[in-house]
Design a protein around this nucleic acid. Structure first.
Lengths: 222, 222
DNA sequence: CACGGATCGTACCGACCGGTTCGATCTATG
DNA sequence: CATAGATCGAACCGGTCGGTACGATCCGTG
């Protein structure tokens, strides 16, 4: 589990390299990354602070100095994950070129790759929201869906959909539905089927690419 | 919270009516129904056994005699809810007539009605699966999705879709995605948008009955 | 009328959990 | 060399939770 025998040791399960100040910021980031993996796999309440710290190779005091409380860790973790995942998907879409169809294809392919990952356990935000009825976590989940919706509505707009916000919502349902089904029901091919559905909705959404400029519409948040 | 003052009292928060044997089966069903509501609203781990019993107006001993353990209650509860919900949706579909488009419309209208219910908190099965990483609960959630899938694939078959199982999966994603979005993001109109998407997918699925502009084909191919 | 069964209310128990504290160790800095 | 800061490991604390036990109450039945 850990490295370093009793003679020399320190910090995060590994002996501190030669001459390096223990950088708190780096420590915090490392804790965040490792804790995210454990809490995602086992659930927020599935692992206590003691075991969590043991797995990370840190002491409870270190964790509490960086995050104040377990909730602080959870919130920081969810925020960071939401940002990272959203950025990743936005990159995938961006690198797919200008064709909205290609963008959607790339997006659902990326999702399928995620579903195939052995550690895939569904959307961490929605899982967290189901576990902690805490209002803060709910807000983070809602914000996460906001980010997704913004990305998808952007695709819908570039496709010249007659009602891009409606299409964006529908694509959001497909993305989240595919994620849920992949997590709970699997059987494979979920991403592909979702992609086909998305392309069908796109094709049926009105004049494709013929009306690039249109009145901008209000945005997210109820 | 309770009825009955200190003079006469008994059983399930209400005084036992005049001459009636306390029927264990009825007691169990009543506990199940009331516990379902509380645990759905607050989360499986959001309310302890003590408080749960207080809310139901029963003693812990009674609960444990009927369900053995909290997990037993949870499992019984989820099973019963899955059966009830699925049956209800099947009825809605059945009462909508023979047209698959009408059936889908009725189904998503029913879902929208659910979303509008103030106690709506998303799909209880998926919430439970996110909370208890327990294998039994996961299996119950998977079985729940099986039931949904069966219903939706049936509609796809009656519509004469070229690939009814694929369309069924896609409709399942829409249903679950709509439920997730309604629970976490709301803003209204989710059911309607999901319904439109479902009808679009149905119309594009190579069906005979649901697309008026295509060559007709016989229905019913199991 | 006595008995068995279902129930209540309460007290109790052991386990665990989130969080705090403390002494010791090591590093960089001045 | 002394100090300050980051960390470790372990002990500790109060609270909560799931589950059990027990005496008392009320019912229908024999």
């Amino acid at each position: 589990m850990l490295a370093a025998d009793r003679t020399d040791r320190y910090h995060l399960g590994m002996p501190v390299p030669k001459g390096s100040t223990i950088d708190p910021a780096r420590t915090r980031a490392t804790i965040l990354r490792a804790a995210t993996a454990v809490l995602y796999e086992r659930g927020l309440d599935g692992v206590g602070v003691a075991e969590l710290c043991a797995r990370l190779g840190i002491s409870k005091e270190t964790l509490y100095r960086h995050f104040g409380a377990k909730d602080g860790l959870v919130e920081a973790m969810l925020q960071e994950r939401s940002r990272r995942v959203t950025r990743r998907l936005a990159e995938v879409v961006e690198q797919a070129g200008d064709d909205p169809r290609e963008q959607l294809t790339a997006l659902f392919d990326a999702l399928q790759g995620w579903y195939d990952d052995p550690v895939f356990r569904g959307c961490a935000m929605l899982n967290a929201s189901a576990q902690h009825h805490d209002e803060t976590v709910r807000a983070l989940a809602a914000r996460h869906l906001d980010r997704y919706l913004e990305l998808l509505t952007g695709i819908a707009e570039r496709a010249g959909a007659a009602a891009p916000d409606v299409l964006g919502r529908q694509l959001l349902m497909l993305v989240e539905g595919a994620t849920v089904v992949a997590a709970q029901h699997d059987a494979g091919g979920v991403g592909e089927h979702a992609r086909q559905a998305a392309l069908t909705l796109l094709a049926a959404s009105g004049s494709a690419r013929s009306t690039p400029d249109r009145a901008t519409r209000p945005r997210r948040r109820p």
